[in-house]
């Protein structure tokens, strides 16, 4: 494992991704998701919205890092808002 050069922040990052996936699985088993239309142009399930939210967050981070001098936490904050909005109304 040494060659993978783990750091604490990346470990936390992957652990949280894994937790989200497990949580989504449990949620799906408890009450299955129904496809629906929100403000996104396509009908989505819960998992689709999570993917769109995460992908959007990644691009948001790149945008903030590449085009502005803002602190990275600003991007993370915005992403969190975006993720919640997509999950709820997407």
């Amino acid at each position: 494992m040494e060659w993978m050069s783990w750091t604490l922040p990346t470990a936390i990052f992957f652990a949280s991704i894994a937790t989200i996936l497990v949580a989504m699985t449990v949620w799906e088993l408890r009450s299955a998701s129904i496809e629906r239309r929100g403000f996104l142009p396509i009908a989505t399930t819960r998992g689709d919205r999570l993917f769109i939210g995460l992908l959007g967050s990644a691009y948001l981070h790149l945008l903030v890092i590449g085009a502005t001098d803002w602190n990275i936490w600003v991007a993370s904050g915005l992403s969190l808002v975006w993720l919640l909005v997509v999950m709820r109304w997407g």
Binding site: E2, W3, M4, S5, W6, T7, P9, T10, F13, F14, H61, I65, I72
Partner: peptide, 22 residues
């Protein structure tokens, strides 16, 4: 995962590497 780990560090060799954020 390894690529993500590399991308936030300045790596000279396994023992001397530094976290550099973004």
């Amino acid at each position: 995962m390894t690529v993500v780990n590399y991308s936030v560090q300045d790596i000279f060799d396994q023992s001397s590497r530094y976290f550099v954020g973004a």
